[in-house]
Amino acid sequence: MTALAGGVGLLALMTLAYGTVLCRLGERPLLRRIGLGLMFGAGGVAAMLQSVPVAPGVYLDVKAVPVALAAPFGGTLAAFLAAGIVATGRIAVGGAGMLPGVTGILLSGAAGLLMARLVPSVEWRGARPLFLLAPLSALNTLGIFALPWGEALPAFTHGGLPVALFTVAGILMLGTMLARERRRVDTERVLRDAALSDPLTGLANRRAFFGAIDREVAGALRRDAPMSLLLLDIDHFKEVNDARGHDAGDAVLVALSRVLRHGVRQSDLVARFGGEEFAILLPCTSLEGAFLLAERLRCAVRECRVEHDGALLHVTVSIGVSALSADAGRPDTLIKAADMALYRAKSHGRDRVCRDRALCQPEAVPVT
């Protein structure tokens, strides 16, 4: 009973660790796979420490369970890490059953890799694939036959069936718990993304932008690094809505968001600031660099054509540029400086870029 309670507790602990790794490292695929491989490997080693003798030289444990589940729930890298860690642990323990133990571990890992290749990852959110993986992984008991036949047959006869049944039960229990945890984490991620993204354009929304600019300004000041901000406004956007309808306006917003997203670096943040206004946060970018980018974006938008109901629509944008400085060293002052530059760009004729007047001489690029 003590071993059974310990096994159940280990499964619960692994499920908790699995959810934590997915949440903490969800945006870092390589680190997530490494973390999951270490977690499954540690779980297998911990299972060996709770083994129960069922026959001379034969021990009942669930070390094969984390190894088999590593590939479906962690990926190929996690599977190799887990199998390597558990096999190393079994070698360190030594004894007459070392070779059968390592062979069984490798068989379990191979079963998990095979099933992960054959079954799409989305299917592992349910329990159905587990009923195929469990009996396949139970074949790890065949590792006993790595011993001489005279020793292997009695050991398999007396202990092979309990080990196989324990492996099947462990995979069904832990796999079901991991699948449920993955669904929970995925649901939370979808809800979080929905709360921080604009439903029409898919860009970050105003709430996400303010959270990001607070972090980026604090980081830039701490590292003494440059940072710039662009505020863009679609010129005469109300006329598009009035003349063509809101569907046409939505099409323009979607097309513009695509142009902006493709025109910046991966480290830059493009957000829909509100209505027809957009903001682009540019870490590690000076005012001059931000101005050149703004010019490229302005030209790209001007050349863009949006097809809607058989008509080709085109729009222009006015852009205000600001950068961190002694006068604009806080998020609110940085936004205000870019907003004032945007106002000047619109008042000087639109379809142009203006920089923060406090940092340099006012410049407006004429329309060519």
Score class of each variant (00 low, 15 high):
2 T>C: 00
11 L>T: 01
12 A>H: 01
13 L>W: 05
20 T>S: 04
21 V>C: 07
25 L>V: 04
36 L>S: 09
43 G>R: 01
47 A>C: 00
59 Y>Q: 04
61 D>S: 15
64 A>C: 13
72 P>H: 03
74 G>Q: 02
75 G>T: 08
75 G>I: 03
77 L>F: 12
82 A>G: 01
82 A>Y: 02
86 V>Y: 06
103 T>I: 11
108 S>Y: 08
114 L>A: 09
119 V>K: 01
123 E>I: 01
135 P>F: 03
138 A>Y: 06
138 A>C: 01
141 T>V: 12
146 A>P: 00
148 P>S: 06
152 A>Y: 10
156 F>Q: 10
167 T>G: 09
169 A>L: 10
173 M>I: 09
175 G>I: 03
177 M>I: 00
184 R>L: 15
192 R>H: 15
195 A>P: 09
199 P>Y: 11
201 T>I: 11
201 T>F: 14
202 G>M: 12
215 R>P: 04
215 R>Y: 06
216 E>T: 07
222 R>H: 04
223 R>F: 02
239 E>G: 01
240 V>Y: 13
251 A>E: 10
261 R>P: 02
264 V>G: 08
266 Q>L: 14
270 V>C: 13
278 F>W: 15
281 L>K: 10
285 T>C: 14
298 R>C: 06
313 L>S: 05
314 H>M: 04
321 V>M: 13
322 S>N: 12
325 S>K: 14
327 D>I: 13
338 A>S: 00
341 A>I: 15
344 R>P: 04
345 A>F: 08
347 S>H: 14
351 D>H: 06
352 R>W: 00
360 C>L: 11
365 V>E: 09
366 P>L: 03
368 T>I: 02
